[in-house]
Design a protein around this nucleic acid. Structure first.
Lengths: 195, 195
DNA sequence: AGCGTACTGAAACGGTCGTGTCAGTACAAT
DNA sequence: ATTGTACTGACACGACCGTTTCAGTACGCT
């Protein structure tokens, strides 16, 4: 008798996951369906379901894969985030504007808005998780004396709002210069207001 | 022979449009389908198609209806937006946090992210249009001397980014106090940096 | 050689989708 | 009374959906 239980990890699974990840970065996962996806990754719906259990589980796996990309960024930034809040925010913005991250950021925004309406779906925790990741990173960049104060939280919230708002603008307009200018100005003001 | 051409406006059409609008404010329009919607508004798919021509046209009409809500806000704000950029931004934020606008704002975010991936769909122009509306309102609040300068545009972009980023936070967290605090602090800094 | 494991293909299932067909009903205007 | 207009119900169509069934094939291990 063949296996037909969840493999949870195998060479073929990893390979198809990477291909599928590339596909959703381009096409989003709102209207994703198995047959076109399977064709794009040179496989079949049958195999995708065999390796990933169900479509819902596949979506969850893809979102986890996306988060892995983001966690890798956080590790990188943590290493050199000793320059304070605004410095860390500036580094994050540098990552956000990089053209090769557009797909991931569109996917992030899509999951974010999706989770607001359907908290039960496979993408539910994803948006909150990334937000918490960013906030935690910003907190870590703050001096310990400020980190746990009310104004420290407010400054973190403000920096994050600035980054995310500018990101929305950037994704829609593609105007790197204008948005970067606004972020720089905002961060400079945030810096100047430091006690 | 019956009409079977587009009515484009009628009492019944208006009535169903309002009901359908209430429905999508709650459920979003990503996964909207005619049969559940028709049941919710006590009608039938047949009638919806008769009155709105096609599902795509219905979605466009619903988005136009949403925009009408927003335009009404802009008219209100314009009347008392003589207090400068930060004052106007503060007024906008006051509108954004109002609980009865959550549905509209979730719908806005959904259409926004949607239009990034599928510029051909019925929601394509919607997000850009609202952004332009907001930017124009902010521009109008600026003194004429600053309105057409590069830094004027930058300050507008910054204010808008702050509002939209804080809105993302608010929609996900519901934390009115923290987000409002961040917006107020950011606007105060923007005000202090005024030449 | 025999067997278990990992993967794959073809076809079908029941379901929902947007839309079309064909029939009606209610009612104001003539 | 007749006619035209506005709306509605019942139902079927073809397409696509996620998933299942049943059949394999390729290959390492003993």
């Amino acid at each position: 008798m063949p296996t037909e239980t969840v493999p949870a990890s195998s060479a073929r699974r990893e390979e198809l996951l990477e291909k599928a990840y590339g596909y959703v970065l381009e096409h989003g996962l709102a209207g994703m369906s198995l047959r076109p996806l399977a064709a794009a990754v040179q496989s079949s719906p049958r195999v995708l379901l065999f390796l990933f259990e169900s479509k819902d589980a596949l979506v969850r796996t893809l979102l986890a894969r996306a988060r892995a990309d983001e966690v890798r960024l956080l590790k990188q930034l943590e290493a050199r985030s000793s320059g304070g809040l605004t410095r860390a925010a500036g580094e994050i913005w540098g990552w956000l504007v990089a053209a090769e991250h557009r797909g991931l950021l569109r996917l992030w925004l899509e999951s974010y808005s999706r989770s607001l309406l359907d908290p039960a779906g496979p993408w539910s925790g994803f948006a909150d998780a990334t937000v918490q990741d960013w906030l935690a990173l910003l907190a870590e960049a703050q001096p310990a004396s400020e980190r746990d104060t009310a104004t420290g939280l407010q400054r973190r919230t403000l920096a994050l709002a600035l980054l995310r708002g500018a990101l929305l603008d950037l994704l829609a307009s593609g105007d790197e210069e204008r948005t970067t200018g606004a972020v720089r100005a905002g961060l400079a003001q945030l810096d100047a207001a430091n006690p």
